[in-house]
């Protein structure tokens, strides 16, 4: 079966306020989906709920990943099943070295999958290889997780972690924002190298630019908690030139 992620009529609220109001989305192996939409429309909420953040209440609907109902799984179990979220706002964790953090994460994931622990030298080799892929400086990965990193460095570190953990499905939440022009190209090329036909990507972005590098198979517009429009890559171009006003007109505040 090709289907990887299936979201059906997902309704999610936080503190009594409904943010997602019936999201449907299917992602198959090998696909790249872009999700666009105005600020506050619920893109990050969707990403967090898929990743397993507990602060949200799922009022309705289902999320299956590789045939499993992942709403039943904790965040770490979802990661072990092959999900990855590149955060819009990566968190600084003073005192936790990036190396130990990734070593722990990989060990946990491998154990879950019944794989033997990685040899120290293989781990270091993997680190080197992936550092090269996203051209992240070794001194950054030698520091505490994201501590004192610049905005762009944090984003690059997200992609580095993604490369290390090799997820089946990666959700990249505005990974492009904060990256300079060269960094954007490098990171995008890195992502392209990670594409295998077996994995899939959901790319949340406000800009067409990233999609020039990472060609999406589908573009969705999330507006007020619903996917109101889906199309091919040309939809992104259309949004870039026309903005969201036409969408907003087409989908006025839905009656509750």
């Amino acid at each position: 079966m090709n289907q990887m992620l299936e979201i059906k009529d997902l309704k999610v609220s936080i503190e009594g306020k409904q943010i997602l109001k019936g999201v449907n989305l299917t992602v198959n192996k090998g696909e790249v989906h872009a999700i666009m939409g105005p600020n506050g429309s619920g893109k990050s909420t969707l990403a967090s709920v898929i990743a397993g953040r507990e602060d949200y209440t799922v009022d309705n609907g289902s999320i299956t990943f590789n045939g499993k109902d992942i709403l039943e799984l904790s965040a770490d179990e979802r990661a072990k099943e092959g999900l990855f979220l590149a955060f819009q706002y990566p968190v600084e964790i003073p005192g936790v070295s990036t190396i130990n953090f990734l070593k722990t994460a990989l060990a946990e994931i491998r154990q879950y999958r019944g794989q033997p622990p990685m040899e120290a030298k293989d781990f270091l080799k993997l680190m080197k290889e992936k550092q090269k892929l996203v051209e992240i400086e070794a001194n950054l990965t030698g520091r505490s997780v994201n501590e004192g990193f610049s905005g762009g460095e944090k984003k690059r570190n997200e992609v580095f972690q993604m490369a290390m953990l090799e997820p089946a499905l990666a959700i990249m939440d505005e990974t492009d924002s904060g990256l300079d022009i060269d960094a954007l190209r490098i990171v995008a090329e890195g992502v392209n190298k990670l594409r295998t036909g077996e994995n899939a990507f959901i790319v949340i972005t406000h800009y067409q630019r990233l999609l020039e590098y990472i060609t999406p198979d589908f573009v969705h517009v999330l507006y007020k908690g619903r996917i109101v429009k889906s199309g091919g890559r040309e939809l992104a171009l259309e949004l870039e030139s026309k903005g969201y006003d036409w969408i907003k007109k087409e989908f006025p505040e839905p009656a509750v």
């Binding site: 904790s74 965040a75 972690q161």
Partner: peptide
């Protein structure tokens, strides 16, 4: 920070310990 660690596959208990 806890969620960040968990989202990388580290279980909650271990994530707490790491922090």
């Amino acid at each position: 920070a806890l969620f960040y660690l968990e989202s990388r596959g580290i279980n909650k208990q271990l994530a707490k310990k790491v922090l």
